[in-house]
Each structure stands twice: as C-alpha cells, then as structure tokens.
Design a protein around this nucleic acid. Structure first.
Lengths: 339, 339
DNA sequence: CCCTGGCACTCGACTGTAGCGAGTGCCAGT
DNA sequence: ACTGGCACTCGCTACAGTCGAGTGCCAGGG
C-alpha cells in the first residue's frame, strides 16, 4: 500500500479538480492542468493503485475518477494546503460584527455570515447553558400565583419560563425568594446547580416551601433539561447549488434532518477545545446525511468554549476554504463574546 | 363569458383531479371519474371555453388541461366545498397543545403541527409586539453601567436587551427607574408607548437623566422598531414532495425567500380580523414565490388578533383541506393563548 | 525499474427515426 | 344542444448508430 509522493499529488489534483468542476476527472485533463511532470499513462497507473486502495472510484467504466469519502479524508488530513482568507472575506467578517447589539443578534449575524462566505448551510449553536454560569435570576410577579422566571447567563443568554404556583404568594415573599436563589445560585456553573437547587428546597422557610418546590422543579426542568440548547440555521438555499448533482437528486432527507434540533446538535455540539472537526460522508452518524460533509468547531471567549458552529455541504466541497472560514468566524465570534 | 353550471362543474373536476394526480387531465378521464352526465366531446367544448376565459391551459398541444392561477382562484372562491377535518386531524391538534409550557413552546408546536397536517411549509408569527401591551418591565443590574432590560408582554412574549449606560447608576436609582417605567408604561399598548417614553425622559429627575435617555432609546429601538417580529418556520422538507414537478424544478428561489424574515412577514403578517387569505401563484407580490400559494390567517385569544400563521405550498395544493386545517389550528392556538 | 507512447476496447452521451397513444378540434347527424 | 366519429398534433419511449473521453495493457526505451 505504498503511496509515494506522486500518487498523493495525483489524489490531491483529482480532489481539487473534481471540487472545482464537479465532473469526473481523467488522466489527460489532469496532466494538462497540473504540473505533474509525467505522462497521462503514468497517471493512469497511479490512478489504478489509488482506486485499488479505495481513495477514488469510477462512476462508470469509461469515465474519469471521483474521490471517495476515504479519498477526501486523506486529502483533508494530509494533502490540503491551508488557504488564507481573501481580503474580501476578512472584510465581510469584520463588517458583520459591528453593530451587533445582542446575543440573538450576534448569533443571527454569525450564521448568515457563515452561510454566505462558505456558500453552504451554516449552523450555530447558542452558547450552551451547560457551559454557562448563572449571572442573575429574576422573578417577576405576573399575578399572585404566577411568576415569570428569567435567567441571565454570563454568556449573555437569557431564558425565561412561566411558573404556576400552587398557592398565592406575596410580593415580600417573592423578594425573599429572589434574594435566596440568587445568593445560592448566582455565579454558579449551571451544570453544578441541580444539587444546590435541591438543597434550597430543603432549607427554605415553611411558608415558602410550596412555592420553592414548584420553582425548583421549573428551574431544573427549564435550565438544565429541557431545550437547553438553541440553534440557528441559515443558507439552506445553498443546498440547491450544483443543480441536484450532489445528494443524488433528493434534498428531502437533508432538509428533514436539518429540522431536527437534536440532529443539528449532534453535528456541531460535540466539540473539544481547539479542535476543528471534519466529518465526511459516511463518517456522519446520521443516515440522512451520508451524502454530506460537516465542518465544525467550538467557539467562545478566550480559550473557553461555550458552543459550536459549523457548516454542512456536499462531500464535494472546498475543504481548505471552508475550514479556514469556519475557523476564522469562530475566532471572531469568540472575540465578540469577550466584548 | 357565460359560465353555466356544468362548465363550473368541469372546472371543479379538473382542479380536483389535477391536485390529486399531478397530471394534466383529459376529457375522457374526466367523464370516467366524475358523474358529469355528458360525453367527452361535450366536456371538450366546455374546456375550450374555459381555456378561452383563462381558467385552464394546455401544457402542450396534445396534452390534457391544467388549471391556471385564475382557475384556482375561481375554484377557491366559488367551487370548493368545505372539507371537514378528519378525526385523526382533530386528535392531532388536541394532542399538540397538552403540555405546552411556554409561548416559545406553543409557537414551535404549532408550526410543526401545521407542517405535519398540511404536509407543506408552515409559518407562524410570534404574537406581534405591535399588537401587545406591556405587562411588566424589569431592569436587572448587570454591573454599575449595564442593565438588562426585560419586557414581558401580555401575550406571554418576552424580549430582552442589554443597556449600556453612559454613567454608573446605583441600585436605588435602578429601583426608581423600574418603578417609573412600569407606572407609566405598564398595561399600555406597545404601539402607544413612543410618546410616553418621550415624556418620561422629559420628566425624570436630573440625576437619572442620562440613564433614562439611554434607556428610552433602547426601549424605542428594541421594543418598537427593531426585529419587533419573530417567526417560526417548519416543513421545508415538504417542498420536495411531488419530486420537483412543482416549482419547475428549482427550490432555490423559494428557499431563499423563506430565509428572509421580512418576506415571511409579508406573507402571513397582513391579516384582518376573521379573515383567511389565499394568495395563489402570481397574486403573491414576492417574485420568488410566483409558483406557490399561501394560505394564511390571524390568530389570537378570543376575537383579537395577535399574530398570523399560514402555510405555503405549490399552487397545485388541496385548498379545501389546507384552508380547513389552517383555520382550525388558528382557532386552537387562540384558545391556548387565552389560557 | 520506472516511465512512455501506442492501441484496442468500453460505455455513456447524444442524435435521429419511428411508432404509439392520449388528447384535441371540428363536423355532421340526431 | 349534445354526441359519435375522424383526422391531426405532439410528447414520450424505444432503438440504432455515432462519437469521444477515458481506460487497461503492452512493448519499448532511458
């Protein structure tokens, strides 16, 4: 299985040409467009080896070669050269962040920017609550038996939820509750709160107990368990580029997958610090997305990570360019979040 | 232009058959499937008239007839018989609302329900701020120069925004401010607030003036002007039903349009009480959506309207069924909002 | 030993032709 | 006013033939 340098060059050339033209690439065209220094016949021999090793394949007998998922993988791991951002891209990234007033705003701008730059489907996870701390909890009385619970996280994310109390509660009691929950939970990592919330219920004065119990339930439910994660999506129209040649003609399964938050989270949510993930075709666990590749990474202020972002496109994508863009955008968003 | 009853029957039959089969319908097939009581030749003559009047057309000379936008319009206005919901649909609608904890939750469930029932793209507008009243304004100190402004509307909608103050502010001052804005704005229609906010700035004590001015700006900006409207979308995968026969093969323009909030708002936002709108093909103002139809209506607790919802699909859609579903869902959501 | 030019072969894409059949318009007859 | 009959249109499918890009293999040369 010796793949000498030239064979790797050939593979790289095949990937680059195929990505650019969207057409199976033959030996003759290859030597014409790249300085390989050898004849088509030689290239053909190399191609035969590459095919045997599973890096490329022929759509049909008398056609050129197309990279396989495995071929893309090798390309991404060892063959692609970093592609610096164009000045236009830099400018676009910088322009996007001026004027962002809000976490919502930042996320929306980011996802659109990403979709526009990569010309692919972009996905941005809101700063994960699991990775956030509580900055402040606010209890707003709506009526005597209803409170609006508002949680503000250090990442700027705000979640709210209506709390239906079993028994009426006075304004003073609300004040007490507010002080209490903030004292105990303020500044704490959300992931650490469950036992603290439990403790609160046990310690609270008897008069407040029913209210506190309900509140605790809601706190746990909303802030830790239930749609803890939010996600923004943009650029689905980009799936139609390449005129249905990618995705063997049916966008259906992909659009379906993109409507499932759980799936999106799987795609971009599992990130490790300082890592950029590329999942190519079959490497995706989701069946509907076997024809796509996902480039994702984490973002956050400084070196911490509060959420993931990434793009999804055909396996036939410009990996170096996409990787560079995703990485750059993630860094910028991190900077913006750091304020 | 006399269209006697039978000609209308023919048109109705054509629409129904075409919607069901997705294929141009000929005279012979028509008389076979419907009890028209006349021969194909007669139907042909009627068809010729209908075509002359612009209600149907032939894709090519030797093909059957297809309804035009104008034909659908006539069908919707005068020919369609109401189609009652199936028990399964009723059950689905009822099941969706139990367990909705949140405005967010209600909206999300609604949009998914609508997409599922109609098998089309569903759009739901969050309760419009313009049509809401202020229930409560909360100011949460984040630091001495930063406040988080949280507005809770009577519709259950919650908006928040960070306020950067020009000068530090004390906790007591925050309390004063909070009391003040709530006194003046609480219970007021959001549409009526701008002059009240202005008045607040003029009357406030000098010490609070800079803070109040900034706050006022943010209030006006966030609550009245800027992304005042939010929208949920679901079911884009349904666009791929009918295997690209609708939409002359390209989903692109439609997906693009669906990414623009402004466009979505135009689609479902302009509603009048107790009205259900059907916009067919060319009747849509948005160029990208000339090949689609939109069925939309308003919803809200009781008879008031707080937002719009609707579905978007190919002009070749089951209008009676879709209309029934949209109307039913809107009513249910209204009931849920009334709590 | 590796590369090269040459050659025969494969097979998809495209073109042109022919037949089929669904559907139409028209007309004469009841 | 409706009907049956008839000639006509024209898209669809099948089939045959050609073209050419691309391949695998092989013998020869550095």
């Amino acid at each position: 299985m010796g793949l000498d340098d030239r064979k790797l060059d050939v593979l790289r050339a095949i990937v680059e040409d195929y990505v650019a033209t969207q057409e199976p690439v033959g030996s003759k065209a290859l030597v014409e467009r790249h300085q390989l220094g050898v004849s088509p016949a030689t290239v053909r021999n190399d191609m035969a080896v590459l095919e045997e090793e599973g890096y490329i394949r022929q759509p049909h007998t008398s056609a050129g070669r197309v990279p396989t998922d495995r071929g893309y993988r090798l390309f991404v791991d060892r063959l692609s050269r970093v592609k610096p951002l164009t000045p236009a891209e830099r400018r676009a990234i910088e322009r996007f962040m001026i004027g962002a007033v809000d976490l919502d705003d930042v996320v929306h701008r980011t996802v659109r920017l990403l979709a526009q730059l990569t010309r692919q489907v972009a996905v941005v996870q809101y700063p994960s609550l699991a990775r956030s701390s509580v900055r402040h909890l606010e209890l707003v009385p709506i009526s005597t038996t209803r409170l609006m619970l508002v949680m503000i996280a250090d990442t700027g994310r705000v979640e709210q939820r209506l709390v239906e109390l079993p028994t009426p509660i006075s304004a003073d009691d609300v004040t007490d509750l507010r002080r209490l929950v903030n004292e105990r939970l303020g500044g704490k990592k959300l992931a650490d709160t469950p036992p603290l919330v439990q403790a609160l219920v046990d310690e609270v004065t008897p008069g407040l107990c029913p209210a506190m119990t309900t509140l605790a339930t809601v706190l746990l439910e909303t802030l830790v368990e239930r749609h803890e994660e939010r996600i923004a999506l943009a650029g689905t129209a980009n799936l139609t580029r390449g005129g249905l040649l990618d995705f063997q003609g049916s966008l259906r399964p992909i659009l379906e997958a993109l409507e499932e938050e759980v799936i999106l989270l799987k795609l971009i949510g599992e990130v490790e610090p300082n890592t950029l993930q590329v999942r190519i075709g079959d490497e995706n666990e989701i069946d509907n997305l076997r024809a796509t590749s996902v480039v994702s990474t984490g973002y956050g202020p400084g070196t911490t990570i509060v959420g993931g972002l990434g793009v999804l496109g055909p396996t036939r994508m410009d990996y170096p360019g996409t990787i560079a863009t995703v990485r750059a955008v993630a860094r910028y968003v991190g900077d913006v979040l750091a304020q």
